[in-house]
Design a protein around this nucleic acid. Structure first.
Lengths: 188, 188
DNA sequence: GATAAATTGTGATAAAAGTCACACTAATTA
DNA sequence: TAATTAGTGTGACTTTTATCACAATTTATC
């Protein structure tokens, strides 16, 4: 199953077998089940999760207990509470599983060690983060410039297959619209 | 003036004098004047700009020619069209100066060279990008969970002094609200 | 200092989106 | 398979926000 991680890294930086073994030694495997929390608000956040298969969401609950979804993660993507992970503080996000699956996770300590000892991996994480930054900027632009309908259509275009796996209520929460409004946008 | 860049980098990674000289040799100085474009939609994007002083905005114009502001950049921050810069494609954003100032810019080629030859700088850029990612995620959360008034107040709290230097029309564009609505939020 | 350009506030109205309530269906699970 | 639970659609209504228009003011420029 670790082949998935290797292929993921090698889309950016190629590795020798020895190097990949070394990289892998910094990760641990974690299975997860639907409804399970990988991170819960208030937890100390040690891990960044690379998802091998399955589906998860990262979300925040505001004072009125309304949930807002920041991210979905599926095979070949990473998920954590970045603020809490990188600053070694308490989580403000919840990361919860929507489908059973498996992940390889890495502690911040191990990530820093890995980056120090293998320049290629420092480069990998820099480039990966840069790509994520570009996607997030695109999402911000979509949020400030489009109405609910256009945001939904943009999402459909960007992740057509992912949408099929996610309840509309959660899509609405990701888009920043009420579920009723989204429902009317789709059927009309 | 390059001291500003050195202090900026050394908030994350310390450098020897020789190392900093080496880093600096990868940058060039560019002065800019109010109204000037550093990047215009359709340009080929070569440079990432580190701002020494002055004020700029990065924005996008949609089909209806409405402008939406993605970012403001001031002293000690970086600005470019990340999508175009990193993928070496044509700009979809405009970067325009709101106040005269100076910048140190680096081409993608030089950034990659620098990262390859000086591991510390690869680490610097990784950590800087991670911090930016955290801030962008915070902005996304704000956009999907707050109404116009709360978004404005959040911005005020986060960048109280910056707001003073920017016309309300542009603040509105950054928040994703019409200028009229923002005006009413502030006065009422 | 005069003129032009940019910025801002505000009224009237329209459009978009949110909220509450309820019924129906699909999916889980005991 | 019966009983819960989760997800969805839709009507009625309210609230928020956008749009258009115009006046006033501030700021830049010749």
């Amino acid at each position: 199953m670790s082949k998935i991680l290797r292929e993921h890294i090698e889309k950016i930086t190629s590795l020798t077998d020895e190097e990949f073994e070394f990289v892998l030694s910094h990760f641990s495997l974690k299975r997860f089940l639907k409804h399970q929390f990988l991170i819960q608000e208030g937890d100390f956040v040690n891990n960044d999760f690379f998802i091998l298969n399955g589906l998860l969401k990262a979300s925040h609950r505001n004072e009125e207990n309304k949930e807002h979804i920041l991210q979905f993660a599926t095979e070949n993507s990473w998920i954590t509470d970045p603020q809490a992970y990188n600053n070694q503080t308490i989580a403000t996000l919840n990361i919860q599983c929507l489908e059973d699956g498996n992940s390889l996770f890495i502690t911040l300590e191990n990530k820093e060690k890995l980056c120090s000892s293998l320049h290629k991996m420092e480069s990998f994480f820099r480039k990966k983060t840069t790509k994520e930054h570009i996607l997030l900027q695109r999402r911000v632009l979509c949020l400030i410039s489009n109405n609910a309908k256009d945001r939904y259509e943009d999402l459909l275009k960007q992740y057509p297959s992912l949408i099929q796996r996610i309840p509309k209520t959660m899509i609405a929460s990701y888009l920043g619209v009420s579920r009723e409004t989204l429902s009317r946008l789709i059927t009309n």
